[in-house]
């Protein structure tokens, strides 16, 4: 008799345990049925503000300059495949006449300009055939000597997809908001390098010293 009651007690315990699991399964099924889309939306949203760890672990693919030939020669164009990530150093800038040798970073945040030369990410890459805009602080270790460069001087940009040599043909002092003076076009490969002006400025500099050069 006592054994029978023991069995019934065990049975009841197992029954309630099974009921608990069934409840969990039912709630999970209901949540999946009605909440899956919202959950996926939420995870997508979080993914947008999450660094891609897989990408961090991957070796960066080296950039390649691809030439596309069209029917007429003036329609030919080049595109840099696998461009560098924002903030990555992808080249060095050399102006032998004024002893400038600095790393070029892709991007133009002040954080990058603390490390070297910034490349305006709205402009083209060397070799693509469009205008290239580079900038740097007028601090002694960066572009303080830039105004000493003369028309006819050589500028070298070394990347891991090629060497590019330009020749200075003009210099100008422009207002910081005068973006027409540093136009970004795909018509001609013009390299524009600018720094704050005047060099001995104190406070916020509203002018820029721009050096214009063309492919040699």
């Amino acid at each position: 008799m006592q054994n029978k009651y023991k069995k019934e007690g065990l049975k009841a315990t197992i029954f309630y345990g099974i009921v608990a699991f069934l409840i969990v399964i039912v709630i999970c099924m209901i949540s999946i049925r009605f909440g899956k889309e919202k959950f996926l939306m939420a995870t997508d949203l979080v993914d947008m503000i999450t660094i891609d760890t897989q990408k961090l672990q991957e070796e960066p693919i080296p950039p390649v300059l691809e030439n596309f030939e069209e029917e007429t020669e003036d329609q030919n164009f080049s595109v840099l495949l696998n461009p560098p990530d924002y903030g990555a150093q992808y080249a060095t800038l050399k102006i032998p006449s004024i002893e400038i040798d600095l790393p070029i970073f892709y991007g133009k945040t002040l954080d990058l300009l603390k490390k070297g030369i910034g490349h305006d990410n709205d402009s083209y890459f060397p070799g693509e055939g469009g205008s290239i805009v580079l900038m740097g602080h007028n601090y002694s270790k960066f572009l303080r000597k830039l105004p000493q460069a003369k028309i006819g001087d050589e500028i070298q940009i070394s990347t891991n997809y090629g060497e590019f040599i330009y020749q200075i043909y003009d210099t100008q002092i422009v207002n910081e908001y005068d973006t027409d003076k540093v136009p970004i076009t795909d018509q001609e490969e013009i390299l524009m390098i600018y720094t704050c002006w005047p060099i001995n400025n104190v406070g916020y500099a509203t002018e820029r010293y721009v050096v214009y050069s063309k492919v040699m």
Partner: peptide, 13 residues
């Protein structure tokens, strides 16, 4: 500190 430092180079101070 980093934020102020970012403006140091361009300020000439």
């Amino acid at each position: 500190k980093n934020g102020f430092e970012e403006y140091q180079y361009q300020s000439g101070f």
